[in-house]
Amino acid sequence: MRYLVIIALFGILAPRAAAAGPSAGPDELARFCRRADYILHGRVTAQSFIRDRDGLIWTSYTLVVAEPLKAPVPAAVKTFQFRQPGGCFGDLRQVATGSADIRRDDEVILFTRDYGAGFQSVAEGDRGCLRVRTVTDARRAAASRDRRIVPAACKVAPGRASIDLDRLKEQLREAVKQGAGAGEAGR
């Protein structure tokens, strides 16, 4: 069986027999989704570099949206611009530790947020960009949990070790619903 696997898992670590134990999982995922302005499935098609007035270099990406899973406006957007710190500008290079590894042609599930600067940034550093990869070996996929993607506390119960893309999107839609209207303090 061939899975489209997100190299990041929302699996819970409670034993099956104790699945009713700590139940923070869905709430945590809902909080993570709530903090994002946008959650988008799409493909990165372009990147460019911007240097701001403080001298910070940003990489600006273009995402061709396949499906918006959360968007503050009706989802007619086909391309989407977002940034993260780090990049090249002339002879200068900047590295911001904890940035996501985003490459042209990557298929991603992207979480972004405007943190107050007037543009959408990758949320939560490298945890806010899930690279979609085709993994043929389910056992290997099970071990490919990528802790970058989701905050450590973000667990989904009851999860699975490998999640196909459709299943993940379904979980995200549900989490977005749970988070809707609950409000979120801070920026």
Binding site: R35, D52, G55, P85, D91, Q94, V95, Y115, V122, A123
Partner: peptide, 26 residues
């Protein structure tokens, strides 16, 4: 707002500026 954007929601990070000759400036 600039720092919040540069952090992107993570607890802390370092931003290194260097050139193509590997010299760190900042």
């Amino acid at each position: 707002a600039a720092n919040r954007s540069a952090l992107g929601g993570i607890a802390c990070r370092t931003i290194l500026t260097f050139n193509s000759s590997n010299v760190i400036f900042d």
